[in-house]
Design a protein around this nucleic acid. Structure first.
Ligand code: FES
Ligand code: FES
Lengths: 132, 132
DNA sequence: GTAAATACGAGTAAAAAAGTCGTATTTATT
DNA sequence: AATAAATACGACTTTTTTACTCGTATTTAC
């Protein structure tokens, strides 16, 4: 429990790689995948998603690839996580309100508080801190 | 991602229930399960685990049940989570070191830092804060 | 025209979590 | 002593989530 997904892990690895590779221009999915031993297709999808989110930019065609375009200092881990994986909540009823026992539940409020603490923590960390 | 398990959720519900039920002495698994609409067997196992961990005390036989014995102010959420679910880490390689790409990995150190932040946060919250 | 790259939906496989079953033990009640 | 209601717990099954793969289309340098 309390784990991040591989998708997020791969995204972070890729971002850091692209950042230290900035001067060389584009980086292909294949290059990252083979360098770190991660599945290329899965990584590609993740890169595509980050491209849709304007964190990186895609260039098609042979000799294409991806390039960092966002300022990683300005993106919080909370926003990044939620862009890739949807809303962050310790339990499903943290955001999705059709919980069966929502009537009887005796820990809804305190869990909500802990949840806010966690979101807060991730709001105060930036992508830059992970990739620097 | 970043979710707690039902086991932990049920444990918290049970603890809070027992706490507000303190003067009445024992509480049975059946009572809690039916009150909150959670699976009795699963809850029972969780209660048994907490009993092994000396958070609650079990009394066997008919009219048996469980009773809070620990001081919830003194148990951090981190310790509680780890007692129920094992070591807390954002990724498996946070504690288990046989990660394949541990050689090439470029985010090990920063992830470790974030992980520490998270553990820290849960170290500073007590069970009492959830059950009060 | 070809080859190497991105784009993306659909489908499959693997892993983790959630829940169930069976059986043993304890003990208050009768 | 028998019964019934509770805890104890390992093994198993089901469900859900995550991880991964496949097929096909598109773009574009050469
Ligand atoms: S379990 Fe859904 S509100 Fe508490
Ligand atoms: S992925 Fe295992 S050390 Fe980074």
């Amino acid at each position: 429990m309390l784990k991040i997904t591989r998708k997020v892990e791969y995204a972070l690895i890729a971002l850091r790689h692209m950042q230290s590779n900035k001067e060389n221009g584009l980086t292909s999915a294949k290059e990252i995948a083979s360098h770190y031993g991660i599945p290329q297709q899965l990584l590609a999808k993740t890169l595509q998603q980050m491209a849709r989110d304007d964190i990186i930019e895609a260039v098609q065609g042979p000799a294409g690839g991806y390039r960092l375009i966002a300022n990683l200092d300005l993106i919080s881990l909370k926003d990044f996580f939620e862009q890739l994986e949807g809303p962050m909540g310790l339990m499903d009823c943290s955001f999705d309100s059709d919980c069966i026992q929502i009537g009887a539940c005796n820990i809804r409020v305190p869990i909500q508080r802990i949840n806010n603490n966690m979101r807060n923590m991730f709001s105060q960390m930036t992508l830059q801190e992970v990739t620097q």
